[in-house]
Amino acid sequence: MKVNRGDVIRINYTGRVKETGEIFDTTYEDVAKEAGIYNPKGVYGPVPIAVGAGHVIPGLDKRLIGLEVGKKYTIEVPPEEGFGLRDPKLIKVFTIGQFKKQGIIPFPGLEVEVTTESGRKMKGRIITVSGGRVRVDFNHPLAGKTLVYEVEIVEKIEDPIEKIKALIELRLPMIDKDKLIIEVGEKEVRVEFNDQNIDSRTLILGEILLESDIKFLGYEKVEFKPSIEELLKPKQEQEEQTKETKETKEESAIEKSTEENKPNEE
């Protein structure tokens, strides 16, 4: 079974820098611990992606097409298809005073967030501190690097509802999937999240990304409950609406029970 563009699959992978062998990303918990990149809040195990949707870097994404499920591969990605080439213009010079005003003592290797004159915030890494000047590199740490991925195609998901669940797992891994109600039609998808213990801002961002992902699969209409519009309402208004919905459901259940238990009249 081969992988095609638009397929929803699960993959395991480990990414290394070709020149040094340094591991920078992996789905294996034990590998992450050995490499010193383990994140206690991270989610490890086969990751779901939609092939061609940009869930992984472009050079890896396009090279997944044509691979076979159940097999392992070594894939090399050049810099221009990974995190880009290094741009000398992204190396900026600041004064030490600019950092000290923010309570930062600059030293090589320190990762910093700098606000430019235009008000834009940029993350970079200090590369030198000399003569009262601080040079900061705003290139991605992997820019200019050739990357090597060891990839295993674990599964190709065929069931439409399981595809949607997989995309939700990708975008909102903290969601309780047992509470989800998913309806999939020929051209439309409806997802009801119900009482999830999740920040509304996180859910809003997740819904925005999910809508794009689901439409990539070919669906034309995507509906969420609660919708983004509902989540943007003031918290008190949200709570009142949730209470009304709950009361309506309870009333409907009582009416149904009463109707079912009503004695037959001859």
Results as ranks from 00 to 15, higher is better:
residue 5 R to M: 12
residue 15 G to D: 05
residue 19 E to V: 09
residue 21 G to L: 06
residue 27 T to D: 06
residue 31 V to I: 14
residue 37 I to H: 09
residue 39 N to I: 06
residue 43 V to Y: 11
residue 46 P to L: 05
residue 46 P to D: 01
residue 56 V to A: 09
residue 57 I to Y: 08
residue 71 K to C: 04
residue 71 K to N: 14
residue 73 Y to V: 14
residue 75 I to F: 10
residue 86 R to G: 03
residue 90 L to W: 10
residue 96 I to Y: 12
residue 97 G to V: 02
residue 103 G to A: 03
residue 103 G to Y: 00
residue 104 I to A: 07
residue 105 I to H: 11
residue 106 P to Y: 05
residue 107 F to I: 09
residue 109 G to T: 07
residue 109 G to H: 05
residue 113 E to A: 07
residue 121 K to V: 13
residue 131 G to M: 01
residue 132 G to F: 11
residue 136 V to K: 00
residue 142 L to N: 04
residue 147 L to R: 09
residue 148 V to W: 03
residue 153 I to P: 10
residue 155 E to I: 02
residue 155 E to M: 01
residue 157 I to G: 08
residue 159 D to S: 05
residue 160 P to R: 07
residue 165 K to L: 14
residue 167 L to V: 04
residue 175 I to P: 08
residue 176 D to W: 01
residue 182 I to N: 02
residue 200 S to V: 15
residue 200 S to K: 15
residue 201 R to A: 14
residue 202 T to G: 12
residue 203 L to A: 10
residue 207 E to Q: 15
residue 208 I to E: 14
residue 208 I to G: 01
residue 210 L to I: 13
residue 218 G to S: 13
residue 222 V to W: 09
residue 234 P to V: 12
residue 235 K to W: 14
residue 235 K to M: 15
residue 240 E to G: 02
residue 240 E to A: 04
residue 240 E to Q: 12
residue 242 T to N: 11
residue 249 K to C: 00
residue 250 E to L: 13
residue 255 E to Y: 09
residue 265 E to L: 08
